[in-house]
Every structure is written in C-alpha cells, then in structure tokens.
C-alpha cells in the first residue's frame, strides 16, 4: 500500500497544476492560518483580560469548554445550508474550534504569573497596560504558544473534514479517492495531512521552548557586564 503512495509522489504531474499536491498543501495551510488568525484575534485579548483582571473567569472559560464539544462536521454542514459560500461555513467552524485552546492558553498563562511579581511591578509604578504587556505577557508566552500548538493541531485535522463540504486542501484527496474507490488516492491524502500535522506540531513544540521567559537574545545581552561577572567569578 505504501508503494502506491510512493508511486503517486514520484509522478511529477501530481505535484503541479491546480489540483496538484503543492496547491492542495497551500490551500490547507491558508484556510488553517486564516482560521487561527481570526480565532487568535478574538481569544487572546479576551483571555488576557480575564487573566489580568481575574473577572468573568467562570462563565467565559465554561462557555469555551462547551464549544469544544460541538461536532465540527455538524456545524459545517448546518452552516453551509444557510450561507451560500464555499469558504465561510468551514471557516466559522474552524474558528470556533480554535478559540478554546487559544483562550485557555492566554488566560491560564497570565493567571499563573506569581502575584508577588505583579505586585512588584505595580509598586514600581508601572501602569496597568505596561504590567500586562511587559510583565504578564512575556511570562505567559510559553502557555500561549502551547495553546497555539493545540489549536493548530485541531484546525489542521478538521480542515481535512472541510473537504466534505467542497473545500480544497488535502482532504480533497481523501474524499475524491473515496468517491472513485481509488484507495491509493485516499492514502495520499491521509499520509500527507498526517505529515503536515506532525511537521507543524514539531515546529510549534520548539517555539514553545524558545518562548520561555528569561532567555535574552545575544544581541541584547550586555557583553561588557557579562565579561565583568565572568572575571569576578574567576
């Protein structure tokens, strides 16, 4: 079976053209990126505000967890009967899917910043917005990126299903293959979308590590100070 997959990949014409692999991957990435961007625009400000003020936590986090249980296929098929567009119904379903992990990341990231750290910033006279952007957000970054990772995973997976309602992307291969009883084509779609998911997940996992606070880039490091410290330690 994997021989069929390799055979499909080795035919050059399968890569190019309007239904080639390259276009399908780009379509998949484009709809996913759009959905995540819109969801982040909603979830991150709300999450930061809940985390910063500590207000509205129970209803909003509860609502977001309720969103997780909605079956995406049902939402897509329902919306497409009311909205005559190929892209908007699946996009709405993907945005709803991406909101809960992003919101949880932003909210819990800010909520776990030690109170003493925030009190110190406030007593130094930092304004509320400076506390948020210069103290809380940098400390919350690892969890926020972890939320982005979770959202990306789910959106890439569910964008595959969106091909059922005539969206492009890698799911197209699976549904076209199923319709034509061409299981080699089904495998091409399944393997490619799995590889895309695994690759993006690995990328975002390393981004979580980079986002850890306290890592000063070499450009911003005070080299003279470090040389002096090293000299005194020696």
């Amino acid at each position: 079976m994997f021989a069929d997959f390799i055979a499909y990949l080795s035919v050059e014409s399968n890569w190019t053209g309007p239904t080639g692999i390259l276009i399908r991957v780009l379509e998949h990435l484009a709809i996913s990126a759009m959905a995540i961007a819109i969801a982040a625009g909603i979830a991150i400000p709300v999450g930061l505000m809940i985390g910063h003020t500590g207000r509205g936590q129970a209803p909003i986090v509860g609502l977001a967890n309720g969103l997780r249980a909605i079956p995406s296929l049902g939402l897509m098929t329902l919306l497409i009967l009311f909205i005559s567009s190929d892209i908007i119904p699946p996009l709405i379903a993907l945005v709803i899917l991406a909101i809960p992990p992003l919101l949880a990341g932003a909210y819990s990231g800010v909520a776990i910043v030690p109170r003493a750290t925030i009190d110190a910033a406030r007593s130094m006279g930092m304004s509320e917005s400076r506390i948020l952007f210069q103290v809380e957000v940098p400390n919350a970054l690892p969890l926020m990126v972890a939320g982005l990772r979770g959202a990306t995973l789910q959106v890439i997976a569910t964008a595959t299903i969106a091909a059922y309602v005539n969206l492009g992307g890698l799911g197209r291969y699976i549904f076209d293959g199923l319709a034509l009883y061409d299981y080699a084509l089904v495998l091409v779609g399944a393997i490619l979308v799995s590889l895309l998911g695994i690759g993006l997940d690995a990328l975002l996992a390393s981004l979580v590590r980079v986002a850890r606070p306290g890592r000063v880039s070499p450009l911003r490091r005070d080299t003279a100070l470090h040389a002096e410290i090293a000299r005194r330690v020696a």
């Binding site: 997976a157 595959t160 495998l187 393997i191 979308v193």
Partner: peptide, 24 residues
Amino acid sequence: SSLIYTIPSLALFVLIPSVLGTQF
C-alpha cells in the same frame, strides 16, 4: 502518544484498513 495525537481522525480512520487489513 503525542505522535498518534497529531494524526487527524479522518486520516487515521482511512489508514487503519491499509495497515491492519480490515474492511473499509
């Protein structure tokens, strides 16, 4: 386990018959 979790559900549904030889 994190690798398995990264594979989309639809992809896993259609990959399993090819790996285990079950009916589609």
